[in-house]
Design a protein around this nucleic acid. Structure first.
Length: 811
DNA sequence: AGCACGCCGACT
DNA sequence: GTCGGCGTGCTC
């Protein structure tokens, strides 16, 4: 009698815990399959992880059923899910769910029905309140009512108390139903002429009906089968008319599965490989030679090349090499750069063989794309971080473009995985090669490359249509001097002059506003000094209610100073200029230049991105104002001036990666200028002209940045010299939250001593950077050490705690 | 999501 | 002593 170990979709079945079930005779199951299982009083979904002759638990119940709509998860993906579950401390079922087709819903709906025996209904001394009468009447009328509907009627709280009262008295029963597949394959009617009639037959078979004749002729004139939907649209005929033709046996009609293809109707001109530079050729050779090797360990390459150095061409030719060996590839790109241009670039090189996974596709399109990947209809899958989980068999190559991007880390909900780490793990299991590409690699990745864990491939030159266009010249503008000289405008004099010049010459300008983290820190307007935590070296966050400065890692607090502690200046200001104000000031300062704004407010609605971008590309506007969004994929030769309004706000985010982020963003913005033959100028307005992140970005010098950054990381033992884990407690009451966090910290410390672990710092508790979220307060503890994930895996956290391993951004 | 269990205060 | 509120943990 075989038994199945099942990962159940229940919140308390956290981490990798499984439950044992008996496989009833006649039920055919394999590991990786989705099943329904009895769990307490409910039926839940689960995934079979293992099948054994003996159960791991004595008292087993039977599996209820197999969920047929979903193909079993492959053994490799199952293994990957287990790794994600143990490393990121997420429930195994949630991790397996990452591998399921899009649109697979895992919701359980509750329904209310009357009990079978209805004699209790007539019981005389049952006193019911108004809500209960209402619920009972509704259920009597409808037979079966969804819990959601009752809740909509009388509110969640009242519905629950009324219903539980009724159930206790035996007047009502509750049942559950699982919605497992919200999306289904789409079918459509296809018609075809069954046989061709000659002139003489036409009249005898079709009769005198003109309409009938027109419909037949339309169908007969098309070569092969056509969809009924298109025929109906063209002829205006009804289904009854079609039926009369089918009945006469001269037209055949059948239901077929229709593929919802996101690339349908887009004609691409197939592109051929481009001529490579020496460095590109070398990189390609190295990658291709690793493809052939069937070694157990993975080969990870870091392809480090400045903007425009031709990384994509190396990806394309590496993929082509993998495909020619009968293998397949996955290309991960940050969501924001998954533009039509990117997709076209890949699909042009592999016509008809590229799958696109994208959150902007309809669920139906995602579903069909996924199914076709599973069937092996594609050689290359392009998509955001979740595309790493698509069922690509015979994986040979994984490309992660812009590997430093934080969008590769899933934040919410769990599992909070990093697609880069998952890809490396998957490659390790499949023997695939990984190529990490970036102009500004993350410090961790570059460190790995410098240690020889990854192989470093460098593309030093820019390959643009105008041979060897130098990187644009960057001018760092010291805003302290502007203030001293009496200019308190947003635009420095030099930027103002450059913009005016460009507009007069019929050239275009991009003004970039770094909005992230603005207005949370205190900065001296004279010397640019920003207060930082002495222990954690992250900037202190200003809290206006208490007029204090707080460190969000270790909870160090101080009263906000009235004068600058460094130079004594009383003008300590709070930054925060919106894109709207910048737009207004730009319109006023550079009239009659045409200004458009591109930020998350301006791009609400479908195709807004493409519309605004198109407008600017066609030179219907002279100045483009934007935030982070404009740093990606904009490639407009006519842009000759790029101004960064506040280059240093990013530096002051309370995040140990703030300098790295700033460097990356500035480098990317600087790459937006001078992509045409006229070259370009870039201006960084800043209060910190000497900061190494700004300096290195201005000099286009990654190594300079890295060499300094790695020293700071070592000094403060931040990654890559340690690993971090952030654990957050959230509660509606701030004091409860703080007390619980303090209690857990003590327990963690005791556990650390008990286990004799030396390399583990426990920082905090401190209020989380977003202290209040959706009405709940949040406090966090940060663990820093060699293996915080391993430490926490044997230390179950109670209710209300969430874990984030290797957190990115404002934790 | 329910149900059992256990702890604590108010009452017979 | 006993009833019942609710907070906590378990469901193979």
């Amino acid at each position: 009698m075989p038994y199945a170990e099942v990962a159940v979709n229940a919140p308390s079945a956290s981490s990798g815990r499984c439950f044992s079930y008996c496989i009833p005779p006649g039920m055919d199951v394999v590991p990786g399959q989705l099943v329904r299982v009895p769990f307490g009083s409910r039926i839940l979904e689960g995934a079979i992880v293992e099948i054994n002759e003996t159960p791991a638990f004595e008292h087993t119940r039977d599996l209820t059923a197999v969920i047929e709509e979903v193909p079993p998860v492959s053994p490799q993906h199952l293994q990957l899910a287990q790794w994600i579950s143990s490393h990121y401390l997420a429930s195994l079922f949630e991790c397996i769910a990452l591998m399921l087709p899009p649109g697979f819903e895992r919701k359980s709906l509750t329904f209310l029905t009357l009990p079978d025996r209805s004699e209790t209904l007539e019981h005389p001394d049952l006193r019911l309140n108004e809500d209960q009468e209402h619920v009972l009447a509704t259920v009597r009328d409808m037979g079966r009512v969804g819990l959601k509907e009752i809740e909509r009627d009388i509110g969640e709280k009242r519905a629950q108390s009324a219903i539980s009262g009724l159930i206790r008295r035996g007047l009502l029963t509750r049942s559950y139903e699982l919605v497992s597949a919200r999306v289904k394959p789409k079918t459509g009617l296809v018609v075809e002429a069954a046989r061709h009639l000659d002139e003489r037959e036409l009249d005898t078979v079709l009769g005198r009906s003109k309409q009938r004749r027109a419909l037949y002729e339309f169908i007969a004139s098309s070569t092969g089968p056509v969809s009924w939907a298109s025929v109906r649209q063209a002829t205006g005929c009804t289904k009854a008319l079609l039926a009369s033709l089918v009945a006469r046996g001269i037209v055949s009609a059948r239901e077929v599965t229709v593929t919802r293809d996101p690339l349908a109707g887009r004609l691409v001109n197939p592109s051929s490989p481009l001529q490579l530079t020496g460095a590109q050729r070398f990189a390609l050779q190295e990658i291709v030679s690793s493809l052939g090797k069937r070694s157990a360990s993975s080969a990870v390459f870091l392809l480090h090349g400045v903007t425009g150095s031709g990384k994509t061409e190396v990806y394309l030719q590496s993929l082509a090499a993998a495909v020619s060996q009968g293998k397949r590839g996955i290309v991960l790109v940050p969501e924001i750069s998954l533009t039509p241009q990117t997709i076209e670039r890949f699909s042009a090189r592999f016509p008809g063989r590229v799958a696109v996974m994208h959150s902007h596709l309809t669920l139906g399109e995602q579903f069909d794309e996924w199914q076709r990947i599973e069937k092996g209809e594609f050689d290359v899958v392009v998509g955001p971080r979740s595309a790493i989980f698509t069922p690509v068999s015979n994986l040979g190559l994984v490309v992660i473009d812009e590997e430093h991007e934080w969008t590769y880390k899933q934040q919410e909900p769990a599992p909070r995985y990093h697609a880069r780490e998952v890809a490396i793990k998957l490659a390790e299991m499949t023997g695939a090669t990984v190529v990490l590409g970036s102009a500004t690699p993350s410090t961790e990745t570059f460190y790995s490359a410098s240690r020889g864990n990854y192989r470093l491939l460098t593309l030093p030159e820019r390959v643009t249509p105008f041979e060897n266009t130098p990187l644009p010249e960057v001018k760092v503008v010291d805003m302290r001097n502007e203030l001293k000289s009496g200019n308190s405008e947003l635009f420095s004099r030099i930027l103002s002059a450059a913009v005016t010049d460009a507009v007069n010459n019929d050239e275009q300008v991009i003004l970039f506003l770094n909005r992230r983290g603005a207005s949370t820190f205190v900065q001296c307007r004279k010397c640019g000094y920003v207060l930082r935590c002495r222990r954690c070296d992250i900037s202190l966050t200003y809290h206006s209610i208490t007029d204090t400065l707080v460190c969000h890692l270790c909870n160090y607090r101080m009263r906000a100073p009235g004068v600058c502690p460094k130079c004594g200046n009383p003008r300590i200001r709070f930054l925060g200029t919106g894109t709207q104000r910048l737009e207004e000031e730009a319109v006023a300062a550079f009239a009659p230049a045409r200004v458009i704004r591109w930020d998350s407010d301006a791009t609400k609605g479908k195709n807004a991105h493409e519309r605004i971008l198109g407008e600017f590309t066609r030179h219907e506007a002279d100045i483009l104002i934007g935030t982070q969004m404009i740093t990606k994929g904009l490639d407009i030769p006519n842009v000759t001036v790029v101004g960064v309004m506040n280059a240093d706000t990013g530096i002051n985010l309370p995040d140990f990666r703030a300098a790295e982020r700033t460097f990356q963003v500035l480098s990317q913005v600087a790459g937006r200028a001078g992509r045409g033959e006229r070259g370009g100028k870039v201006f960084f307005q800043t209060y910190n002209p000497d900061h190494f992140a700004i300096e290195s970005a201005a000099r286009h010098d990654y190594r300079h940045f890295y060499d300094i950054e790695i020293i700071y990381r070592r000094q403060l033992s931040y990654p890559p010299f340690s690993k971090l884990a952030s654990i957050v407690y959230s509660h509606t009451n701030d004091a409860v939250c703080r007390t619980e966090a303090a209690r857990l910290k003590k327990e963690l410390e005791e556990e650390r001593e008990a286990r004799g672990i030396s390399e583990l710092d426990i920082l905090g508790p401190a209020p989380a950077y977003i202290h209040r979220l959706r009405g709940r307060y949040r406090w966090q503890i940060v663990l820093r050490g060699r293996d915080p994930s391993g430490f926490l895996s044997e230390f179950p956290l109670g209710r209300g705690w969430t874990v984030d391993i290797d957190p990115v951004g404002l934790v």
